[in-house]
Each structure stands twice: as C-alpha cells, then as structure tokens.
Computed example of a mutant assay.
Amino acid sequence: MFPTRRRELERIKGYMTSQQYQEPFALAINAPFGEGKSSLVQVLTTQLKTDKNKVLFLKPTITDNKDKLITYFFGQLEILLKESGIYTGHGSALRKYVEQFGKLIDNNKFDAFLDLLGFFEKEKKEEYRETKRRLEEDIKQMLSSSTKENIKRLYIVVDDFDRAQENTMLETLIFIKELVDFKYCGVLFLMNYDLVVTGEKISRDYLDKFIGKRFDLEKISYSQIFNYYIVQSQLMSLEDDEYIDFINDEMNLLQIHAMSYLDEAEESLSSNLESLRNLHQLNSQNKNKENTDLLKLSKLNLETAEKDLQQFKDKLNNPRRLKRIL
C-alpha cells in the first residue's frame, strides 16, 4: 500500500473505531475511479474482520432494483447470524423484519426522508418497532458472540456507488437510511462524490443528509507510485540470486528513464499552455474587429491546452494507468 494510503487508512479506521458502538453512522470515501478506493477498503475490511467485526458488501451495479437489494443484503445477514448460532427460520426476527420491510418497499409512495412507519396503523407501528428491536438484539448477540471483551460492529460497505444508474443510487440511499438507524451498524460508501451529485434527483444537500463524514483521498504523486511498484518488483525477485543484481539495476534505470520522460512531457505541455496563454492575452488587448476570429481561435486553443495538461496530470496520478506503463 502506498505510504499516503496507509496514513489515510489509519485516519479512516481511527474515525470508525472511535464511534460509540451502539450509535449508527455512515461515511464516504471519495476519489475518482482507479485511484485506490477499493484497494484501501480491502485492507480496511480485512483489519476490521481481524478485530472480530462483521462486514457485508453491497454493489448497486448488481443489486439494481429493490427486490435484489433486499434479497442480497438480508441473505448475507442471515448467513452471518446462522454462523453465530442465531435462529433465522420461520417466525424469527429476521424473517418478520424482512416481510414488514418489504411491505414498505412495495408501497408506491415509498420515498427518501419519508416516515417509514407512516403507512402502518398504530398497532402495526408497534409491531414493526418490536420486530426491529428483536433483530437489533440478534445482531448484538452475533457481534458479542465472537469476543468476550466488548460488542463489535456490523459494517456495510457500498462499493461502486457512483457507477450505478441514478434511480438505483436513490433506492440504495433509501434502503441504507433505514439500516443506518440500526444500532451497532456502520455504513461505508465508496464513491466519486462529484459524479453522484451531477444527476437530477441527488443534490449535494440531499446526499449529505445520508453521510455524516466524508474522507477525500489525496492524489498520489507518480514518483510515489513508481517507487512503490519498483520496490515490489525488486522484492519479487529476491529469491532469484543469480539475476537479482541485474534485475535491480534494470528496474532502477527504468524508474529513472520513465520519470525523466514523463517530466519532459509535462514540461512540454506546461510550456505550450503558457505560450498560448500569452498569445490569448495579446489578442484580448487588441480591440480591432478584424481580431475577433483570432481571439476566438486563441481562446479555443488555450482551453484545449488546459484540458490536455489536466488530463495528463490525472493519468499520472492514477495507479492503475502507471502500473500498465511499467
């Protein structure tokens, strides 16, 4: 794991484990596609499981409707409860809760921030609350059966959230809203925040009502990425004593040459951008009507150069792309 990601991992885990175990919460890890969200969370969830917590995964790209969402999630939860010796058959808290929750989902008026109990008569409301309390007790028993020290947590990881259709994202948020209200549960979204809020139905204010804390992953410099993969390659060759010196020398040369080439490319793009910026400034100062076309052209060239440089930098900071280069 990159040094930057290790520091972020510790910060995120520290926040998660510092929450009161009974209080539910939801947080988001935010970064563009390919910048290491899933890799970081893979290490994080491994550590959480080692600490005797339970982890469930949701992929909105797969569970792309309400029925699939309910079946997939509660199917995973049933497996965890059974592993802890908790009854999940007919009449169990889990079965009754899924049945009652399904009635809410089936109601056409079901929407975000709606009082979920508003559809039930008074007696049914009490029954729903009691069923939910019983399921919370089962979850508590599951989380305390693995350790005598203290009660752990059930973490729900929602991966590739931003890659789903907007209606699927919305349904997932509504579903998660109810889960976040469960004691002992924590929800972790993996997303590109800016992509999620570009649609018509999910605004920044809307999304922030679901997410209590957001961690924005830093962009990793390409020198750090190269160093990491070079070291990994050298470690892989340690068992081959005959060629280890040759391999290390070649890998070091590769790093030097690749970084030098990329530095030159970035410098060339930056220099071109600066020249176009100066040219556009000169054209802007000339108020002659004949200069209108030149001004439009210089502006277009400037915008293209700015876009090219930004795309180049974005690709340099993408570990997956640089790994392919190496």
Results as ranks from 00 to 15, higher is better:
M169C: 12
I156R: 09
I156W: 09
D160Q: 12
F161V: 03
V180N: 08
C185N: 10
D162R: 08
Y184L: 06
M169G: 02
R163F: 03
K183A: 09
D160I: 08
F182H: 13
F189W: 05
K177R: 15
V157Y: 00
E178T: 14
L188T: 02
C185R: 03
D181Y: 08
K177N: 15
K177A: 12
L173G: 05
D162L: 04
I174Y: 01
E166G: 06
T172S: 11
V157M: 08
Y155R: 04
T172D: 09
R163D: 11
F189D: 01
F175H: 06
I156S: 05
Y184P: 03
K183P: 06
D159A: 10
V158W: 01
F189K: 04
L188N: 01
D159W: 04
V187Q: 09
L154C: 06
L179A: 02
E178Y: 11
D181P: 00
L179R: 08
E178P: 00
V187K: 06
T168I: 15
I156Q: 10
Y184Q: 02
V187I: 15
T168Q: 11
L170A: 01
D159Q: 13
F175Q: 08
M169R: 14
M169D: 01
Q165N: 15
D160A: 12
I156M: 13
I174W: 02
I176T: 12
L154N: 07
F175M: 12
V180L: 11
K177Y: 08
L179F: 04
F189I: 03
V180K: 15
Q165R: 15
E166K: 10
D160G: 04
D162G: 05
Y155L: 14
K177M: 08
E178A: 09
V158P: 01
F189S: 04
K183C: 03
V187L: 12
L170R: 13
D181F: 01
V180A: 10
L170F: 15
F175A: 03
F175V: 05
T168A: 14
A164W: 05
I174M: 14
K183D: 13
K177T: 07
D162S: 12
I156F: 11
D181N: 15
E166L: 09
M169T: 00
E178R: 13
F182I: 07
L170Q: 12
A164C: 11
L154H: 06
F182A: 09
F161I: 03
E178G: 05
T172K: 09
N167S: 14
Q165T: 07
I156N: 05
L173Y: 07
R163M: 10
F161L: 06
T168K: 11
G186D: 09
D160W: 02
C185W: 01
F161S: 10
